[in-house]
């Protein structure tokens, strides 16, 4: 879990974003190195989606700079692959999983796609990379949540991006499927030399694979290795009141202390249906 010494692919400096007059991100700075696995951790509403959208160029920011490979981010960027938050798909939609993956290659281009050999090969390779060969011909809308997640990842990596952004990919998955996705992403990060920036509200599933963490709270961010950030002093400063960080059997508990031990609450792993 040590930060690699590689040159940063993404640098965010003093980024501030307001949504309808409310400051959602306040002077956020962090960087992501090539091939690094970074977890973007924060509660619902902490600004994770806004931050990812800003990096993608889908959200205007008030101030600050976003650099990709040392250059200011351009409008349309093929260096970034994106997996949005859970999307609701019509089960009857006439589109196979492989069609959606193929659109990751050229979905923004005009004209009808030609079924060239290289395009087919790229689709096959992407499906294989996420272990989705067996359901490539099924309709996307009829896949399970975990399967859809894999297809969306295949869609995002087919254009060979340098940075992969994922918005809460684990939110709607059970523990087991979540672990599979995390393992898959870690493998993709090493094999394809792509940096991963993944947002989540749970830190523990990411601990085995995460190189760095960006912790968002109150619109501000702390970043560094897990050991540097997930500490009582750092998180207490971020939240503006005292929190305790406890490590139990290799898992991390962030506990909000409030007026003594009586109100101490521990959050626990949630296993959504």
């Amino acid at each position: 879990m040590s930060a690699s010494e590689s040159a940063p692919i993404l640098e965010v400096e003093n980024l501030s974003v307001s949504l309808s007059g409310r400051r959602v991100l306040d002077q956020v700075s962090f960087s992501v190195g090539t091939g690094e696995f970074t977890g973007l951790i924060g509660t619902n509403g902490a600004g994770k989606t806004t931050l990812l959208r800003a990096v993608l160029g889908m959200q205007v920011h008030d101030s600050g700079v976003i650099h990709l490979l040392g250059r200011p981010r351009s409008k349309r960027n093929h260096l970034i692959g994106y997996v949005p938050q859970k999307i609701n798909l019509d089960p009857d939609m006439p589109m196979r999983a492989r069609d959606l993956v193929g659109l990751g290659l050229d979905g923004h281009r005009l004209g009808v796609p030609l079924r060239t050999r290289s395009r087919n090969a790229a689709v096959e390779a992407s499906l294989a990379a996420v272990g989705a060969e067996s359901f490539g011909d099924a309709r996307v809308g009829q896949l399970s949540g975990g399967e859809q997640q894999r297809i969306l990842i295949a869609h995002a990596i087919i254009s060979r991006p340098r940075l992969l952004l994922l918005d809460e990919p684990l939110a709607n998955l059970d523990l087991h499927s979540g672990q599979e996705i995390v393992g898959l992403l870690a493998a993709i990060a090493t094999e394809q030399k792509v940096a991963v920036l993944l947002s989540a509200h749970e830190i523990n599933p990411l601990l085995p694979v995460m190189d760095r963490v960006v912790y968002l709270a109150n619109g501000r961010a702390a970043s560094g290795t897990t050991e540097e950030v997930i500490k009582t002093e750092v998180l207490s400063a971020l939240y503006g009141h005292h929190v305790d960080v406890i490590s139990v059997h290799g898992r991390i508990l962030v506990v909000a202390g409030h007026e003594g031990l009586d109100h101490l609450t521990m959050s626990h792993d949630e296993v959504p249906g």
């Binding site: 889908m58 970034i80 999307i87 959606l100 659109l103 923004h108």
Partner: peptide
Amino acid sequence: RPLLLSSVADQLGEA
């Protein structure tokens, strides 16, 4: 292609 892509999810096209 853009029509197909954005009919899956607007965010995919937007990205």
